[in-house]
Write a protein that binds this DNA or RNA. Sequence first.
DNA 1: ATATGGTTTGACCATCTGGTTAAATTGTAG
DNA 2: CTACAATTTAACCAGATGGTCAAACCATAT
Lengths: 204, 204
Amino acid sequence: MDKANDTTESRILEAANRVFLRSGWDGARMQDIADEAGINKALLHYYFRNKEKLFDAVFERVFRLHFRPALQLLTEDRPLEAKIPDFVEAYVQTIMANPFIPAFVLHELNRSPQRMVTMADRVAPEIRPILVAQLQAGMASGRFRTMDPRQAVAHLFSMVIFPFIARPVLSVALALPATDYDAFLRERMHEIPRAFFALLRPDL
Amino acid sequence: MDKANDTTESRILEAANRVFLRSGWDGARMQDIADEAGINKALLHYYFRNKEKLFDAVFERVFRLHFRPALQLLTEDRPLEAKIPDFVEAYVQTIMANPFIPAFVLHELNRSPQRMVTMADRVAPEIRPILVAQLQAGMASGRFRTMDPRQAVAHLFSMVIFPFIARPVLSVALALPATDYDAFLRERMHEIPRAFFALLRPDL
DNA sequence: ATATGGTTTGACCATCTGGTTAAATTGTAG
DNA sequence: CTACAATTTAACCAGATGGTCAAACCATAT
């Protein structure tokens, strides 16, 4: 994945990644991570002083991965009609490869919301609200209905991220067999941009 | 709250409720619950044999509360234009009184998805997909655009629930000061039904 | 071969955690 | 007042958990 590495340190990171993502901070056990990495527990503390340091390393990694599609694609200076579908597709593809990421990130951020602030300006120190600006421009020109643009952004993120977190609920509520859920998510890659621009249209 | 109770058992349940909601199964400590209830730890095991039994009691309680608005209001035999706003308002009101509920419920359901199945038919054994049926009827009549009605349901739940789970993210991403977030959520009570019916409109 | 520095391990430790038990306390019926 | 059952407590236990440490291992430069 990274720069051609099968070092002990990267094996630890891979293992910690899996265990923390599966069990979260509270549920993860240093012994499990050691087992998963095929090493001694003491070696964990040799490379990462303690559980917290190891978690921090994992979390920053996952945080970056989770928000990369938004940070990379949504901040470009392109029309919404082009950016939004690209973002949705990139996010869905990224997360389908590791569906636990959003639940993990949001759970840990709820456990210590302060982390969101520190992470935000480590990962995206100076991000302009270009998305909001584009929405406002569209409203001014009459292309979009007038509304709080932040509500629209909330709609977008909700529709994109939520189904990954609520899989157990939605698969039951929508009577979707486990095997069909992935197809349902893939379908959303096309459905969400459609819905998003539809909900922005003026009433007339 | 319930039937006029200040019994030890209900004090335990209230305390367990707070602690489990705040910390989840993995993070919750029996000692913390005992302290919060102002009793001895052994007394916890006197009323509830073990942590699991106590958790089950709490979880069922919270699960019912969380899904009551949907189960109660969305299954009524009324036009969508009336039901949806009522549902959204009821849900937002309910959860704003205890904002940790959705994150807790979804986190625990992701930890053991099987629980969703057992809970679902304990709480709503025979629920007909009336919402989907109504959407399909609307599509047949041309009032709504043609689409997978389950995608529309997913849109709705996403927009309603997600902002409660993603508060740390959205408050930073949307530059919403902590004090304004509640107002932002209240505004969604009106915004979401508007967006929902807008995204259902046919293209023409 | 051997000294050196980084790497890895097994054994160990203090503390925490869910759970148990026997005794003490309290309320109540006779 | 007393006997009895339900409630509550302090003390305790076994296993788990994060973390430490001295010794062993290993590669490599001399």
